[in-house]
C-alpha cells in the first residue's frame, strides 16, 4: 500500500517536471522563431498553434496532481486562524473529497472529448499545411484523472498517516 501511494506521488512529481519541460520548450521554440524570422526572414508558421495546443496544455494540466500534493492551490484562507486542529482536519478532508469529485467529473468529460477529437482527427489548417492536433486533447483528462486520485489520497492521508507520510516523503525528497 505504502509503496503504491509513493509511486502515485512520484508519478505526480514526474508529470510536474514534464510541465517544466514544456516551459523550456516554449521559451526555446518561440525564441528560435523570432531569431529565424529576423535573421533569415524565415517563419515557422506552426509556432502559435504548437505553443497554444501542446506546451500550454501540458503546462496547465499535467502538473495538477503535483500542485495539489504540494498544497499550491490558492484559497482565501479567511477562517483558517479560527479553526481548531480537529475542525481544520475535518474541513481539509471534506474539501479534498469534494475536489476529488470535481476533478473526477472534469476527467470523465474530458476523456470523452479527447476520444471524440481523436475519432474526428482534429486538425488545424496553417497556410497550405494541415497539422493534426487531436493528441493535445489528452493532457487535460490525464491531468484531471491523476488530480482526482491525488485528492482522494490526500483526503485519506489527512486521516491515516500510513497514506499521508509517503506522499509527504515523495514530494519533498530531492
Amino acid at each position: 500500500m505504502q509503496r503504491l501511494v509513493k509511486l502515485a506521488a512520484l508519478l505526480a512529481k514526474t508529470l510536474g517536471y514534464i510541465g517544466a519541460l514544456a516551459v523550456v520548450a516554449m521559451m526555446l521554440h518561440i525564441s528560435l522563431d523570432v531569431i529565424l524570422r529576423n535573421a533569415f526572414r524565415y517563419s515557422m508558421n506552426t509556432v502559435p498553434e504548437i505553443v497554444a495546443r501542446y506546451y500550454m496544455t501540458a503546462l496547465a494540466f499535467l502538473p495538477l496532481a503535483w500542485l495539489e500534493m504540494r498544497r499550491d492551490m490558492i484559497s482565501v484562507e479567511l477562517l483558517d486562524f479560527a479553526l481548531s486542529a480537529r475542525a481544520r482536519r475535518i474541513s481539509d478532508v471534506s474539501v479534498m473529497l469534494l475536489a476529488s469529485v470535481v476533478y473526477g467529473l472534469l476527467a470523465w468529460t474530458n476523456w470523452g472529448k479527447a476520444m471524440r477529437e481523436t475519432r474526428v482527427g482534429t486538425l488545424v489548417e496553417i497556410a497550405d499545411y494541415k497539422m493534426a492536433v487531436w493528441h493535445s486533447f489528452y493532457f487535460a483528462p490525464i491531468g484531471f484523472t491523476l488530480a482526482a486520485v491525488a485528492c482522494l489520497l490526500l483526503a485519506f492521508g489527512r486521516l491515516f498517516p500510513v497514506i499521508g507520510t509517503p506522499i509527504e516523503e515523495a514530494i519533498h525528497e530531492r
Binding site: V23, M26, M27, I30, P48, E49, V51, A52, R53, Y55, M56, T57, L59, A60, F61, L105, L106, T109, N110, G112, K113, S136, F137, A140, F144
Partner: peptide, 26 residues
C-alpha cells in the same frame, strides 16, 4: 453543464496570447 466542464478547460488554456504569462513569470 457537463458540456461546460468538457470544453472550457482546453479552450481557455490552449491560447497563444496566454503563453505570455508563463514566459514573463519565468
Amino acid at each position: 453543464a457537463m458540456g461546460i466542464l468538457q470544453n472550457t478547460p482546453y479552450s481557455f488554456v490552449a491560447s497563444w496570447t496566454m503563453s505570455a504569462v508563463p514566459m514573463f513569470l519565468l
